[in-house]
Design a protein around this nucleic acid. Structure first.
Lengths: 342, 342
DNA sequence: TTGTAGGCGTTATCAG
DNA sequence: CTGATAACGCCTACAA
């Protein structure tokens, strides 16, 4: 490994000057600068991160914290990769390294997070799978670790957040379904602790009422964990006294299970049961065509990264400045998974 | 942040002693040790990673390098998460942090890797998506960065590797298919540069011959990049002069496209076209049931991590010691996607 | 514009 | 068993 010392010796100038040249400080002659840069390139010099971190008190690492659920299944998969890429596209420009951190399934997520924070492994974090009362938010605040969340929580840490507009998804879905004559609409809900669940419930309540329909609590169904979620859901729906004609969901894998569950019973999506929800590129594989909502996840990543940079650049002024807090809009993709009952 | 210096001052002993106590060295009195540990807990002291890295020349970070293809699609997704988890389960015990590193789509993968290595960001790396002639292998060797690969290459860097037994998959698939009367069997191949492609080709050649079938080069088809791969493949197969009755593949997403492509043409998997290949838990969503091969990916992760630890612990003895180099076996899952033509 | 020197937090060596 | 000190690589006053 060639160090700054080697470089200095090689050029026969002082370490300090080399450092300043490398960091493009103003008080170095152009000539020296280019000489240093050239030599650095030749010797393949790249600053050692540990040395720099120690001196500057920054690691230049941003962590993206991912959670797998109890089944080791990741809601996100394809989801997060796009967000991740969007974030990188802005962070690399700033010399920041984005890394994905996955809680091991054999360690408590909180313990894992604590360890990351305590070691000062990152300069900032992005949290996903936000809970309704997410203890991590206060924890990070109290530890002075800058962060943003992909999703919101009842707990407000003053941090920037971005969220997918699930509220709007449910609203739009109910509008479309009722317009096509659906009057018994089920809602497939994710696991208990996620705030997303509550956002969906609220939106569902509001928009069912708005549509002039009777609210039936039994129509709000928690999807079971694991791979069989969609299949199980179909059986539940089919066996309800008031059989729903449609179901709205947020999990992009769920429709695969639903299609499968329907097929097992000889039923057809969009005929025997309508479904609409959030989808990714995987949706294109379903037959008949899925009707779904898509988000621009790359863009979301870009915006999260930008929001994060803002608070990192100026952590003190956090009070006065408006913090980025937005729901990102969806795009509607027409398909054949909704029946017209009129 | 409380540093070791604070701790020492607080206890009124020297920094050196504190350090030794913290690291549980033998030459410290039990009494001092427990005093230090207690104080550390009270003051919430956690060693600063940068300082430690600088001093020890180790970062305690292991990087898992992931690639997305040109479409930003990740072959792996669900795949890698399990492997990752398996690795973590052994690495955390050793106080090592595993992070996922994704080349940004707007940066050359090689440049990204170089940067990671040069910054000495990690103590070791795991490479995936191994190419037939993978330049990264020599690069890492020459940089003195310990690494293991998830897949092998023609380039031999002496590193440990583990690979999924795709060779065996193709062999078993051909055996099963021919046994059921298939005589025109297509092979769906991944992108050019992956070594996996060549492993599959070789195995295909060998086993087609072994089955006493005529080799037809046209039956080895490169799948197109992107989401439409499976659909496109179906069209290709259908339009061949010698229409294949079956296809073998390695990409766990591909069957979704194939099912979709067949459905579009009113054809049925396992009847009009048989298919068999590598699958993940997603496979369970396909109707009719997919016939496929499954790997224990968690286990694979465990073994990769262990192999990595071996070379990290004793980098010098690398020559004499047997390096872990294995193909991990598959499990066959019976389904209905293979027609019996006999 | 450049060189010097101190410090970031930790570990390791070497006296005591 | 413990304390002092140098070293890791880099940055940044401060001095020249």
């Amino acid at each position: 490994m060639t160090s700054i010392k080697d470089l200095a010796r090689h050029l026969d100038i002082s370490i300090g000057t080399v450092s300043r040249a490398l960091n493009n400080k103003t008080d170095v002659s152009q000539e020296t600068k280019s000489k240093v840069l050239k030599a650095a390139a030749e010797l393949g010099y790249v600053p050692n991160q540990a040395g720099r971190s120690l001196s500057k008190g920054k690691t230049n690492v941003i962590g993206f914290v991912l959670e797998t659920d109890s089944e080791g299944m990741m809601q996100g998969d394809l989801f997060f990769i796009r967000v991740f890429d969007g974030m990188q596209s802005v962070l690399t420009k700033r010399g920041l390294n984005l890394v994905a951190l996955l809680s091991p399934s054999n360690v408590e997520p909180e313990a894992y997070l604590q360890q990351i924070v305590a070691r000062r492994f990152t300069d900032a974090l992005v949290l996903s799978s936000i809970h309704r009362n997410d203890a991590r938010i206060n924890f990070l605040n109290q530890q002075g670790m800058p962060f943003a969340t992909l999703g919101r929580s009842l707990v407000d840490g003053g941090q920037p957040w971005l969220d997918l507009d699930f509220d709007g998804v449910v609203e739009d879905a109910i509008a479309r379904l009722t317009q096509k004559g659906h009057r018994t609409i089920a809602l497939a809900l994710p696991r208990n602790d996620l705030n997303l669940r509550h956002i969906m419930i609220e939106s569902y309540r509001k928009n069912i009422a708005k549509a002039g329909l009777q609210l039936d609590e039994d129509l709000m169904i928690r999807i079971s964990p694991g791979d069989r979620a969609g299949v199980t859901l179909v059986h539940q729906l089919i066996n309800m006294p008031q059989k729903p004609t449609a179901v709205i969901y947020s999990d992009h894998i769920l429709p695969f299970g639903i299609y499968r569950g329907l097929a097992d019973l000889g039923l057809t999506p969009g005929v025997d049961l309508s479904l609409i929800g959030v989808g990714t590129r995987l949706a294109a594989f379903l037959t008949p065509d899925l009707t779904y909502y898509r988000f621009n996840l790359f863009d979301l990543g870009v915006r999260i990264a930008e929001a994060l940079l803002t608070i990192m650049d100026d952590p003190t002024a956090a009070e006065g400045r408006p913090v980025v807090r937005e729901s990102v809009p969806f795009t509607f993709i027409e398909g054949q998974s909704i029946a017209d009952l009129t």
